[in-house]
Design a protein around this nucleic acid. Structure first.
Length: 720
DNA sequence: AACCCCGAACTTTTT
DNA sequence: GTTCGGGGTT
């Protein structure tokens, strides 16, 4: 632990103060690139190396798996395997571990399985069907977001303060949902944390055991915590009060998931003896980039003004490319990367960032055509693909046939083997009658003679796979499942490329499983299938984490938070992409639209800010006039965020004309207000409000049939 | 009772 | 561009 002294010397005085803070609450608020994570990492190393705190009594939490891995890596680098490692993970990952070892105390099925967002939605959808709620005004999405919101605020069904009309129905559904999850051993993301907090709250034995063991709790990205996570912090760290929290309100980009950036202030208020350290020196970016980012984020109201500065001089302005279409946008990026890499830049120094995963497609195609290696994080999620889900359902059944009735129903006729609705209904009825699992019912049916002769092979298949799972490696088991289930053959029979591609994905899945097994070597092979099934839900991002190679990095702005790159392409700077149209309001129609809209717009701005501040040396803005959207070309306009960056910090490299800053109120105002207009899809209506931004007119229109919506002026015509 | 085809509807971000 | 569901066909 000799290195620690040198490390401390390399920090600035503020950082050192935070790293070596005495026991007790610590709050670090820090701008982008000011070394937040470095503070956390060094503090952990300092606690272990200098204060002799046993590593396994320190627990550090982050939000993304990527960030957790990075933190683990950096801590290990300092400790150099001299010591045991601290516990580092995401809230969800840590809570899962907690519940797996204490399923009994938590009142959970020994083999509970975790539902991802998609699983949860289809589960809710099925519940609604069963209870004949298909055709109410509620959609599965609405119910899902209601349930998640309630859980994130630590509320169970029935613990409602508002109870009327529609919310009564929602509460009822929440209650049904809870009961069904309980019965089927299903747990959603929010439940992992909620259940953990409840166990800590109600079970004194567990609570004391944990509170005795944990000496220090450290939390990164504190602005992204929600109510539930705040409570988690109190349960795990509140008793000793050795809590270190690190955050930046300007980088709060998860309020849609219930995050309360106000938790920073709440922490300061609640732990009023906390040592508060503010870091304002940026070590990452050049001055023009930082100035531009600061100018942008200044447009947000109600923020605590920070003066983020850098000692670096020089650096080039933001390079702005406004392309004719999305193809040209991608080609431009390819060209630039070619040029830079010819002059000696490594491909891994480039990052292409975008607002939505769908945007990656353009870049993937262009990069693929040009033979430039790239790596997409997240992407059109591999584990969400139909064929992948199908195989995973098989494995869930193999791991543990008696839970997860849903998996059985989805698997039993996949690929089609002549088992239909009638058989499924019989299984469900028998299971309900005899109070047995769907699997047991299926086995019983298979034994009852000719009528269910088609069920037999399925039961044999699962039993066979189960016996294989005891002796084979995970990769091999995956391969065998793909073969023996007949799924590979099923997809190979199809001739069209989409189906053929599914075969490729199945191969990829074998690699992913083998890769996971390798990464888990140190943990041992017991329960490897269980752990794999957890990881595909909790950490589906990095299937092949084996390449720190020469590849361009591509990811969403959300995933990019906390990372840095020498050269960044911030793409899709178009109205309705960044900011996203959801934050502009064309889909919303209620009276509190305005305030919501403002909140969401500010979050989009923070997202843009996060993207800009990822860049160390060179930052590109790119956009396109036309983009292919669900199969057809649509027009786009320059994002308002481009206008919010001072003109002299931008260098044009565009092929199309770039609008100069325009007046915020347009002459169009007079022409539109009060006019009767028609829209291709929404029909006739009256314009009740007009807003202009960068020469684009946003009309608030009161439609005769569909209520009030905000529409871009170009999509409607004035009735004559 | 299962399969097939066609039209409709849906697309933020992550654990 | 994709997936889902309805309705007609085998």
């Amino acid at each position: 632990m000799k290195g620690i002294e040198e490390r401390l010397a390399a920090l600035n005085p503020r950082q050192r103060e935070a790293v070596t803070a005495p026991d007790g609450p610590l709050l670090v608020t820090a701008g982008a690139g000011s070394g937040k994570t470095a503070v956390l990492v060094n503090r952990i190393a300092w606690l272990i190396g200098v204060k002799s705190v046993p590593a396994n009594r320190i627990i550090a939490v982050t939000f993304t798996n990527k960030a957790a891995r990075e933190m683990k890596r950096r801590v290990q680098e300092i400790l150099q395997a001299e010591e045991a490692n601290p516990v580092v993970g995401t809230f969800h990952g840590l809570c899962n571990q907690f519940l797996r070892t204490r399923h009994q105390a938590a009142g959970l099925n020994r083999y509970f399985s975790i539902m991802d967002q998609d699983d949860q939605k289809s589960f809710i959808s099925n519940l609604m069907k069963e209870h004949n709620l298909r055709y109410t005004e509620l959609t599965p999405s609405i119910v899902q977001s209601y349930i998640n919101k309630r859980k994130e605020s630590k509320k169970r069904a029935g613990e409602s303060e508002v109870y009327s009309g529609r919310s009564e129905l929602l509460e009822d559904l929440y209650e049904i949902y809870e009961r069904e999850c309980e019965e089927q051993g299903l747990v959603d993301f929010a439940e992992l944390i909620l259940r953990t907090v409840e166990v800590m709250e109600h079970n004194a034995e567990v609570r004391e055991q944990i509170q005795q063991r944990i000496l220090h709790v450290l939390i990164d990205e504190f602005q992204d915590t929600n109510e539930l996570q705040y409570q988690w912090m109190e349960m795990f760290g509140g008793w000793r009060r050795n809590i270190s929290a690190v955050g930046d309100e300007d980088q709060s980009i998860y309020s849609w998931r219930g995050a309360l950036s106000g938790n920073l202030k709440r922490f300061e208020r609640q732990y009023d003896d906390a040592l508060v350290v503010r870091l304002e020196q940026n070590y990452r970016s050049t001055k023009p980039i930082l100035d531009a980012a600061n100018a942008l984020i200044k447009q947000n109201t109600n923020r605590f003004e920070k003066k983020l500065w850098t000692g670096k001089s020089g650096g080039s302005r933001i390079k702005y490319m406004s392309a004719r279409d999305s193809n040209e946008e991608a080609e431009f990026i390819v060209d630039q990367i070619r040029t830079f890499s010819d002059s000696g830049r490594s491909l891994s120094e480039f990052a292409v960032l975008y607002r939505t995963n769908a945007q990656s497609r353009n870049f993937e195609e262009a990069f693929g055509a040009e033979g430039i290696p790239f790596r997409v994080y997240g992407g059109v999620r591999f584990y969400q693909r139909k064929e992948v889900k199908e195989i995973l359902n098989f494995l869930r059944l193999v791991a543990n046939p008696n839970t997860n009735d849903a998996a059985l129903l989805r698997t039993i006729n996949c690929p089609p083997r002549g088992i239909g609705e009638v058989a499924k209904r019989s299984i469900a009825e028998m299971a309900a009658d005899r109070k047995i699992s769907y699997w047991e019912a299926t086995c019983a049916l298979a034994d009852t003679g000719r009528r269910w002769v088609k069920v037999r092979p399925f039961v044999d298949l699962i039993n066979h796979l189960q016996s294989l799972s005891a002796t084979r490696s995970l990769g091999k088991l995956m391969e065998l499942t793909i073969e023996l289930s007949g799924l590979r053959e099923h997809y190979e029979q199809h001739t069209d490329p989409t189906e053929q591609n599914r075969v490729v994905n199945l191969e990829e899945l074998i690699n992913a499983a083998a890769g996971f097994e390798q990464s888990q070597e140190s943990v041992g092979s017991a329960d490897i299938l269980d752990r794999y099934l957890d990881s595909v839900v909790l950490d589906p991002g990095d299937t092949h984490d084996d390449d720190p190679e020469e590849k361009v990095q591509m990811m969403t702005l959300h995933t990019a938070k906390g990372l840095e790159f020498p050269i960044v392409f911030l793409t899709g700077l178009d109205e309705t992409i960044l900011p996203h149209f959801h934050s502009i309001g064309s889909w919303r129609s209620s009276t509190f639209r305005k305030s919501m809209e403002q909140e969401e717009m500010q979050e989009e701005r923070r997202l843009c800010y996060v993207g800009m501040t990822r860049a160390k040396e060179i930052l590109f803005f790119t956009r396109a006039n036309r983009r292919m959207l669900r199969g057809q070309w649509e027009n786009f306009h320059q994002s308002r965020f481009v206008q919010e960056v001072p003109r002299d910090l931008i260098e044009l490299v565009s092929s199309t004309e770039v609008p100069e800053p325009t007046v915020t109120h347009d002459a169009g105002h007079v022409d539109w207000l009060g006019k009767s207009v028609s829209h291709r899809k929404f029909g006739g209506g009256v314009v009740t409000d007009v807003e202009a931004n960068v020469g684009i007119l946003y009309l608030t229109i009161d439609f005769e049939t569909v209520g009030t919506k905000v529409i871009l002026s170009e999509f409607v015509s004035i009735d004559s």
